[in-house]
């Protein structure tokens, strides 16, 4: 894909556009450094988050279709949030499989359905960049950092998506090649609880404290996640004394290129990661 495209349509999703602006910035800057331009979809809307599919089947199917209709023909749609990726992909599959749905789509948005639209997660792009050797000049970029890679539920998907690419191990592979030490641990793909953090904080706290304790048991100095929602939940729902810093994957990738200090995004963390990074001499 990276041979064919240097420009991508980009869907940030609500979390990266607001609560996790810093992750959005680090993702943009990281790709810019690698000559990849992300053009945010003009006037995109929420994919339905974790609520539409729970309470309204039609909105779960149809909210993402508007975004699909906004994607310009000819460039892939890069999705920054793992959950938005699922919702967009499932809606695209629904349209691809049903003539009636396509007719409804075209009547609704007045734009033709593009069956060839490639919807990709930022993991897919990073994985291709790694295969092309994009990171080989930064072998010591994260030297000495002991990281627990946390996938949460991003690798889980419905049976209909079973044949899509899977990126288990990508964080381990990349962070190791950048000089970090990645740990094997028990809870790397346990769901963080998404919306339970608001509606049943008791359950969310217990789940998240378990996840963080497992990482601490494995002697992790920090946890890295690829989802802004997980990032926030792990930061706000643990009362453990360890105060293990949480990073978004894009932050560590940018940091490996020497970008991060002075950008203001570490300051927005609820658990300050700067003492750890200073002790490893990764930031001044």
């Amino acid at each position: 894909m990276i041979d064919r495209f240097h420009k991508f349509s980009y869907f940030p999703g609500c979390s990266l556009a607001t609560t996790a602006k810093e992750n959005n910035r680090s993702l943009h800057i990281f790709f810019e450094r690698h000559d990849i331009t992300l053009n945010e979809l003009d006037d995109w809307n929420c994919c339905g988050s974790s609520s539409a599919h729970s309470v309204d089947h039609d909105l779960a199917d149809w909210l993402p279709t508007r975004n699909l209709s906004l994607a310009p023909i000819g460039s892939p749609l890069l999705v920054a949030c793992p959950n938005c990726y699922h919702r967009l992909k499932l809606s695209h599959m629904m349209l691809a499989n049903s003539e009636t749905a396509r007719q409804q789509y075209e009547a609704m948005w007045g734009r033709a359905f593009d069956p060839d639209l490639e919807i990709v997660t930022f993991f897919e792009l990073i994985s291709e960049m790694a295969d092309k050797g994009a990171f080989k000049d930064h072998k010591t970029g994260l030297k000495g950092l002991k990281v627990a890679p946390y996938y949460g539920c991003m690798l889980s998907r419905p049976p209909a998506m079973r044949h899509e690419k899977n990126f288990y191990g990508l964080m381990e592979k990349l962070l190791t090649s950048l000089g970090a030490e990645t740990l094997r641990w028990n809870s790397s793909s346990r769901c963080c609880g998404t919306m339970l953090t608001a509606s049943r904080p008791d359950i969310a706290s217990r789940t998240i404290e378990n996840i963080i304790s497992e990482a601490e048991c494995a002697k992790a100095e920090c946890i890295v996640t690829a989802c802004a929602m997980c990032h926030m939940n792990l930061e706000i729902r643990s009362k453990l004394p360890g105060k293990t810093p949480i990073f978004h994957f894009s932050e560590l990738l940018s940091l490996s290129l020497g970008i991060g200090s002075g950008m203001g995004w570490f300051r927005r963390h609820l658990i300050d990661p700067r003492p750890l990074l200073r002790s490893k001499r990764l930031i001044p």
Binding site: S156, R157, C191
Partner: peptide, 8 residues
């Protein structure tokens, strides 16, 4: 929460 772990 519909995390799909079971579906997977």
């Amino acid at each position: 929460v519909g995390c799909q772990t079971c579906s997977t």
